[in-house]
């Protein structure tokens, strides 16, 4: 197990990939790097989300295989986000961006979705309060009050939001989405509330590079907190000081 994970996206067998590194309570993928442990956040049914938790993602782009689109597919399948064959108006909750530098700068691929800012511009600008941040840091759109003004889309520095341009059908019960409203990555809030991993993270760990760690940044013992302490990580456009919930390892 080293950091030089095969960068081609072959659906590798999880067991061989993980080798014998599985311990009883956590998954260690390199010495001292805990990929994932039992979340200690379990909220009882009926309990409200609170700022005790701060959900976050850590994405190690060194482990994100080139040409792999598993997280994107998993997300859109999970949330019923379908294409109408019109790329300009089709919704995208997560996308892979190919970043190429000139000279000695390396080329890499990076999945970008809603960054779940602590100070989200989309929430600030929303006239009706439909764009909102849950107490545990997950940024959502309340489609009951969204009037479809798209101001949040202009305000988002990450192009994380999509406007639903056409009539939708076949929505998943936990991910309502409808024409004329704005939507974005929910961090799979329906799964998080059940102590499950977001679909992209689950898929990445199962079938792809295992580049994503999900967890509670407020919990010092969580895998994500440990990994964040252990290695330097960065926010995209950290200069904007939005305090993102999604961090990356290995980006410039």
């Amino acid at each position: 197990m080293n950091d030089n994970v095969d960068r081609k996206c072959e659906p590798c067998d999880r067991r061989t990939f993980l080798g014998g590194a599985i311990s009883a309570a956590s998954l260690t993928i390199a010495p001292g790097v805990t990929l994932f442990s039992i979340p200690s956040f379990a909220r009882k049914p009926g309990e409200r989300a609170s700022n005790v938790n701060r959900w976050g993602l850590l994405i190690d782009i060194n482990k994100c295989p080139d040409g792999c689109n598993e997280c994107v597919k998993a997300c859109h399948r999970e949330n019923g986000v379908k294409s109408h064959g019109r790329p300009e108006t089709d919704a995208k909750w997560i996308r892979k961006i190919t970043v190429s530098g000139s000279g000695r700068r390396p080329e890499f691929e990076i999945p970008v979705m809603c960054q779940h800012c602590e100070n989200p511009p989309c929430v600030d600008v929303c006239p009706t309060g439909a764009s909102m941040k849950r107490a545990d840091g997950i940024v959502l759109v309340d489609k009951h009050t969204c009037i479809g003004c798209r101001y949040c889309m202009i305000a988002c520095p990450y192009k994380a939001r999509s406007f639903v341009h056409e009539k939708t059908t076949g929505q998943r019960s936990f991910a309502p989405r409808g024409k004329g409203t704005v939507e974005s990555c929910t961090l799979c809030v329906h799964r998080v509330d059940q102590n499950r991993l977001p679909a992209c993270v689950e898929r990445c760990q199962e079938k792809a590079g295992g580049a994503m760690i999900f967890g509670d940044i407020n919990d010092k013992n969580s895998a994500i907190s440990k990994a964040l302490r252990k290695y330097p990580s960065k926010e995209i456009r950290g200069d904007l000081n939005l305090k993102l919930g999604v961090r990356y390892r290995g980006i410039p």
Binding site: P45, G46, E47, R48, A49, R134, A135, D142, H144, D193
Partner: peptide, 11 residues
């Protein structure tokens, strides 16, 4: 619906 969405109260 409001409680589920905004407060995360499930079940």
């Amino acid at each position: 619906g409001e409680e589920t969405l905004r407060e995360g109260i499930r079940g």
